[in-house]
């Protein structure tokens, strides 16, 4: 059986909120290392990969592999009943029909309990090759969100060009063009404001801004976001969570002109 207790419901609420517009039905794969999820959007352009390590829960118990097929719209409805600060416990039997969610208020003696019916989801599982990326950019997640939103006002696509000079986000649209360039930057007092660019070779790739803006819904999960790029491979956008847990998005590039 599965029993996983989160100190704050907020974490799961934010994760589900960040991915629910990209993917609808997904398997939450539970085993003794934690709870993982991998799902592609309908058009096979973007992929979300979530890992909540067992250390992110206390306690965490999962004796055998359990796949919880959950509709994220249903999960969102139930999670709306949880306060951000509530303690959240997920429970399921070994061959479950339902997943049980318990929300406990730390301040009052209120306990709420919900069951969500599970679905059989035959999900295609993709192997993601280990990649040595040509460029890795760490930057404030709010900055990335702002750049994507600002450029989306002009264009559907953004080119991300990484060179020794820095990283340039540029777009061209009907009304004109725009770009934002960031250089490496260290803020001793506020490390969350750092921009770090790790480059082995110059990279230039073009991506759909609609998807990037969608990924940015995860911004509240982490002060920093990591972008990993290599020519002609999907972009990796990573939001690191505590205890080596993470929320990652992959986005296929656009080609041609």
């Amino acid at each position: 059986m599965l029993e996983a207790r989160l100190e704050q419901a907020n974490l799961l609420k934010k994760v589900v909120d960040a991915i629910k517009d990209l993917v609808q039905d997904c398997n939450f794969d539970c085993n003794d290392s934690g709870i993982a999820l991998q799902a592609m959007d309908n058009s096979h352009v973007a992929l979300v990969s979530m890992m909540l390590k067992s250390e992110s829960f206390s306690p965490f118990r999962c004796d055998r592999n359990i796949a919880l097929g959950i509709n994220l719209t249903s999960l969102t409805k139930v999670l709306r009943a949880a306060q951000n600060e509530d303690i959240l416990t997920l429970k399921a039997e070994d061959a479950p029909d339902v997943v049980n969610l318990v929300f406990e208020s730390a301040e009052s003696d209120r306990i709420s309990e919900y069951d969500i019916k599970l679905m059989d989801i035959d999900q295609e599982h993709l192997g993601i090759p280990e990649t040595e990326y040509a460029a890795t950019i760490s930057m404030p997640s709010a900055e990335f969100q702002r750049i994507c939103r600002d450029l989306m006002a002009l264009s559907e696509s953004v080119s991300i060009e990484c060179s020794k000079e820095g990283v340039k986000f540029a777009c061209q649209g009907d009304i004109g063009s725009g770009s934002v360039t960031l250089r490496s930057h260290t803020n001793v007092d506020k490390p969350e404001m750092n921009v770090e660019i790790d480059l082995t070779e110059p990279v230039s790739l073009t991506f759909s801004l609609k998807y990037l803006v969608g990924f940015c819904k995860a911004s509240s999960l982490s002060g920093q976001v990591k972008l990993c790029l290599s020519n002609e491979v999907p972009l990796l956008v990573e939001y690191a969570l505590a205890n080596n847990s993470y929320l990652r998005f992959y986005l296929a590039p656009k080609i041609g002109d």
């Binding site: 058009s43 352009v45 192997g127 090759p129 759909s208 999907p234 992959y250 296929a252 002109d257």
Partner: peptide, 14 residues
């Protein structure tokens, strides 16, 4: 115009 690629080109099915 740019053509959107899909992930199937890059990631293998398991």
């Amino acid at each position: 115009h740019h053509v959107q690629q899909t992930l199937d080109t890059f990631f293998c099915s398991r």
